[in-house]
Design a binder for these strands. Structure first.
Lengths: 150, 150
DNA sequence: CTATAGCGGACCAATCCGGTCCGAATTAAC
DNA sequence: GTTAATTCGGACCGGATTGGTCCGCTATAG
């Protein structure tokens, strides 16, 4: 299973790219070109990021986007949340009201704890950190949960 | 965004239900009834769990399922992986070969670290833990990544 | 031999997602 | 003031994935 949607994945790429030199103002077309992503899709992503206040848009001729904050102050979690919406493991975590099983489902409270761990894992990494040349990151995949990679 | 698929969510419910009294052998129909889940769906889930070796099946009349191991020895991560497949954040994490961006994408190695954190959060919780009455689990949602719950 | 129950797979419908496009609004340049 | 460039905010569509169901087969108990 893939956790992040493609769009959110692209979002991180775009945001990271902008974080590379935060002072430059880039048009959607320029970012698309430099990241090798489809132009229309990049535009859509930037819209979402702007909506969440992560990037600032300048309209009109000679307009473009730039990061609204310093790269160290934007976490991957924020970027993902801006595109995919709020992060939650189960239906229960996000739409609590709709869970008719609330009464006889003992597992529900436990998801919150796991949920927090996941959210924190994403929140702990800033765009700035994504740019650094991978120093500490291990080269091999997790290898703990693996069963059948398909 | 919801991380777990509905099916995987159900899978945890089913597995947890079985962990409640591990010595009883339950038919798929009985589990469906007791968990209030659609019978056919439960059957499908049990098949997946059996395939992964998490539950043992007895065929024929008076057959049924039971946990293959002690509830303390089965993690939520295993249940999820049995149904949704391997866990990975991005396309890169699972299908590394298909990522044409490998060369000019600086973010890739960093995903592995986040990936591990997520996997570990799921692996750290056993079915047995899911059964305990929520003692330590905080009642409030994460509140860190939240932006707009839709 | 018959009823029960899991096994394996095919199958369908619906939802979600990636991606595209277009008109409106806004600003810079001429 | 007019025109061109560029973002904004939608709607929109096709395809892929997923949730859910069903059927025929096998195996076991009585």
């Amino acid at each position: 299973m893939i956790i992040l949607s493609k769009l959110a994945d692209y979002g991180v790429i775009v945001a990271t790219h902008m974080a590379a030199d935060p002072d430059r103002q880039l048009t959607a077309a320029a970012i698309a070109e430099e990241t090798r992503l489809p132009r229309a899709t990049v535009a859509k992503i930037l819209k979402a990021l702007a909506h969440a206040g992560l990037v600032a848009a300048t309209r009109g001729a000679a307009g473009g986007y730039r990061l609204a904050r310093r790269a160290t102050a934007i976490s991957v979690a924020e970027v993902v949340a801006a595109i995919d919406g709020d992060i939650g493991l189960t239906q229960c975590s996000v739409h609590v009201a709709e869970c008719a099983r609330t009464n006889y489902c003992p597992t529900r409270p436990h998801w919150a704890a796991i949920n927090r761990a996941v959210a924190q894992a994403l929140a702990a990494v800033s765009l700035d950190a994504m740019l650094t040349p991978a120093a500490f990151a291990p080269r091999r995949p997790p290898a703990s949960v693996h069963a059948a990679p398909t």
